[in-house]
Amino acid sequence: MFSGASTFADAVDGAFLFILVISVALLVLITFLMIYFVIKYNRKRHKKAVNIEGSLPLEILWTVIPTILVLAMFWYGWYGYKKIRDVPEDAMVVQVSGQMWQWSFTYENGLVTDTLYVPVDTPVRLNLISLDVNHSIFIPAFRVKEDVIPNRTNFTWFQATNVGSYDIACAEYCGLLHAYMYTKVVVMEEEDYSQWFVTASAEMDAGEPEEIES
């Protein structure tokens, strides 16, 4: 389990751990019984089989218990998911555009970058648009992923909890250089971010070619 760096990493990891523990327990149980029966009732030792046609109580038992377990899993998954979808009203908005095979990020004042810079502990809403084919923005450390699809405006959001630099990958196959559609999200302290933002915006206003505002 690798450490998460966003507010909902805990909910995702918790659900994962919950299902993992149940799964391992079930797998061990199934495998153990299989091996145990194969040894204990091996034809060499156990020549005469006993015909047991079934047992209703057992069938009910192993229908009801899995049902309860999967419903619990479902609820746990939904609980974490709600957090991923409920974007705070005051979130800072960045528009993400995907195109073969690069990302670009447009800030509210029109500033465009190819690396995502965000302040720590601040909700950031990403509006996702695609200029050509399907892509998917994937930030493993934040447990965030949402497809970027032409003719649709999907969204996702996150709130980073740790300062640092994290990978952004494209998770939806998009052709030749799909595997190289990587960039970074840089999480900075509030002050550092403001400073960066002011400088970068000033540079933009000075007229960097690709960052002209319309």
Partner: peptide, 16 residues
């Protein structure tokens, strides 16, 4: 498969 059925986990492991 159960892990992928859970929505929050699915978001993370989808397309991996």
């Amino acid at each position: 498969g159960l892990m992928q059925g859970a929505l929050s986990i699915n978001i993370h492991i989808h397309d991996t």
